[in-house]
Simulated scan of single mutants.
Amino acid sequence: MHPSRTRRIAALTALALTGPIAAGVVACGSADTRDPAPDHGSTATTVAPTAVRWQPFQGVDLPVAEEGPRRIDGPVATGFDRTPAGAALAAIQATVRMSIATDSQWSVVGQRMLAPGAGRDAWATARAQISITGPITEDPPKVLGYVITRYTLDATDVDIYSIQPDNSVTRNTTTVVWHGDDWRLQLPDHPTTAPVAGLAVPPPDLVTLAPR
């Protein structure tokens, strides 16, 4: 496949996964070594994260807020509040990073940002069969916001909404679980439906993230 085509697929799949694995690019994050803060913030699912800023991850802007992540170590982002906003940020970060991690980094993303289980194992098996080394350089999708459809202290369902280069809107259905001391993305053991759907417009109850 032509390198530009590979990068294009990476950009589209980063925020709109249509299968167990997506193409990736080189990931080289910055480190924030602040000590983790205690859980804080509202438990209301419609309250947006506070003090949102955007940090690029190989061509895709990812939201960083007071609710997390508090540590970015290379391709891995960790340290999310045990709140709805923290869960949503973890879902966004994990979904993108698992999609665009490079060949030498995807395994550590899987180990530290995905929940263990058959879903993670299937993703790792599929990911090992491709090679991705180039960064995203053109027309990356953009995260618009999210809707939390179910929230508990142990598991949260998050619909991530993104705008694609052709201005279409996609919804990526995800689940994060509280594992150890952080949220982790849980991939389905036996997916029966595609996690991504196309929409005409974002929903009215969208929790919109701060503009870039």
Rank of each mutant, 00 (worst) to 15 (best):
1 M>G: 14
2 H>C: 00
3 P>Y: 07
6 T>Y: 14
8 R>I: 00
9 I>S: 10
10 A>H: 03
10 A>L: 03
12 L>I: 10
13 T>Y: 07
14 A>M: 04
15 L>K: 02
15 L>D: 05
15 L>S: 06
16 A>E: 02
18 T>M: 12
18 T>S: 12
19 G>N: 11
20 P>K: 07
24 G>K: 01
25 V>R: 14
27 A>P: 13
28 C>Y: 10
29 G>I: 03
30 S>Y: 13
32 D>P: 13
32 D>A: 15
34 R>L: 14
35 D>V: 14
36 P>I: 09
37 A>N: 11
37 A>V: 12
38 P>N: 04
43 T>F: 09
44 A>D: 15
46 T>Y: 11
46 T>R: 12
49 P>D: 06
50 T>Y: 03
51 A>W: 04
52 V>Q: 06
53 R>V: 13
54 W>I: 04
55 Q>C: 13
56 P>C: 02
56 P>N: 04
60 V>A: 07
63 P>L: 04
63 P>S: 03
65 A>L: 10
69 P>C: 12
72 I>C: 15
73 D>L: 14
75 P>A: 13
75 P>M: 04
77 A>V: 02
78 T>E: 15
79 G>S: 08
80 F>T: 05
81 D>W: 06
82 R>K: 13
82 R>V: 01
84 P>R: 08
84 P>I: 04
86 G>R: 08
86 G>F: 02
88 A>S: 09
90 A>H: 03
99 S>L: 03
100 I>A: 02
100 I>C: 09
101 A>G: 12
103 D>P: 00
107 S>H: 11
108 V>M: 10
111 Q>S: 12
112 R>H: 11
113 M>V: 04
113 M>K: 05
114 L>H: 01
117 G>W: 02
120 R>K: 11
121 D>N: 06
121 D>C: 00
124 A>P: 00
125 T>L: 06
126 A>F: 01
128 A>I: 00
128 A>F: 01
132 I>D: 14
134 G>N: 13
135 P>Y: 00
135 P>H: 05
136 I>T: 09
136 I>W: 01
137 T>N: 08
137 T>P: 00
141 P>N: 09
141 P>F: 03
142 K>R: 14
146 Y>W: 15
147 V>D: 09
148 I>N: 05
150 R>Y: 11
151 Y>N: 10
151 Y>L: 02
152 T>D: 11
153 L>T: 13
154 D>A: 12
155 A>C: 06
155 A>V: 09
158 V>W: 06
163 I>Y: 04
164 Q>W: 11
166 D>R: 05
166 D>V: 05
166 D>M: 02
168 S>P: 02
171 R>M: 08
175 T>S: 11
177 V>C: 07
179 H>W: 12
180 G>I: 07
180 G>Y: 01
182 D>V: 07
183 W>P: 11
185 L>F: 03
187 L>Y: 03
187 L>I: 07
188 P>K: 07
189 D>S: 13
190 H>F: 09
191 P>N: 07
191 P>Y: 06
191 P>H: 05
192 T>S: 07
193 T>H: 08
193 T>C: 00
194 A>I: 13
199 L>V: 02
199 L>G: 04
201 V>Q: 15
201 V>W: 11
203 P>I: 00
203 P>Q: 03
204 P>C: 00
208 T>Q: 13
211 P>E: 07
